[in-house]
Amino acid sequence: MDMLLSSPTLLASALASIGGEITTSHYIVLSALIFGVGLFGVITRKNAVVILMSLELMLNGANLAFVAFSRHHGNLQGQVFVFFIIAVAAAEAAVALAIIIAMNRVKGSVNLDDATELKG
């Protein structure tokens, strides 16, 4: 747990190394940041289109980590995985946007707060 508490200090020390050598950890921290930004968007926004964009951002954060690890380990598995993620993301975007259009037609709105039928 103290590891968690000390993470701001560690982040500061990572930032302090600007201009220095770039290690795998830099990429991973960056991927976590991008993921976090996307997450923030998903949680706070109500516009379905924007939420979808935030999701794409989260996927990109994960992609970054994959490519970084791929390089770290010196094989292509990570890049292949990213390839598939991009393919799935394309499919996901197509279907999700279609759903948004259908939702707009039915409800006259793309506000996700208006779509709460899926409750227990």
Binding site: L39, V42, I43, L118, K119, G120
Partner: peptide
């Protein structure tokens, strides 16, 4: 009791999952 948590708001589901 638990089903009261699931009010249909997607952002709440996401937060819980996270």
């Amino acid at each position: 009791q638990v089903r009261l948590l699931l009010d249909g708001h997607l952002h709440r589901y996401v937060t819980l999952a996270l």
